[in-house]
Design a protein around this nucleic acid. Structure first.
Length: 108
DNA sequence: TCTTTACTCAAGG
DNA sequence: CCTTGAGTAAAGA
């Protein structure tokens, strides 16, 4: 995409920027993030999150797996689910309900 | 450089 | 349903 602005930003930082754009009550998948970065580094996204400590500035709990499963979270999957449900996201057995509707897609 | 990882997809059982 | 293997990029040993 050779973005509008310089791509000097790190891959990890790019992930954070995208995640911060997710509105409450919505979620996105690791794949969507990777795709938004014109990459296939699904794992790198999760890996970056795992190291991330800025749970306040970066709502990584809004990032779930592509198949609707919640995925992991630094504070535990249960915590992640609790946060999402507070924002209006229904979750059943670690799976996001109406995932396709709630999925926030970035511009392609 | 090799291994592991908050991942994804396809194929085989 | 399950497990493997391949693909992929970053962090740690």
């Amino acid at each position: 995409m050779q973005s509008q602005y310089n791509m000097t930003t790190d891959f990890t930082a790019q992930c954070y920027v995208l995640i911060k754009q997710i509105p409450e009550g919505r979620v996105t998948s690791y794949k969507e993030i990777a795709k938004a970065l014109n990459s296939r580094a699904y794992r790198a996204v999760g890996s970056a999150m795992a190291k991330n400590k800025d749970l306040i500035t970066i709502p990584c709990h809004r990032v779930v797996k592509s198949d609707g499963k919640v995925g992991g979270y630094a504070l535990g999957t249960e915590t992640k689910i609790a946060l999402l449900e507070k924002e209006g996201v229904k979750i059943k057995d670690k799976e996001v309900q109406d995932f396709d509707t709630l999925l926030f897609r970035f511009e392609t």
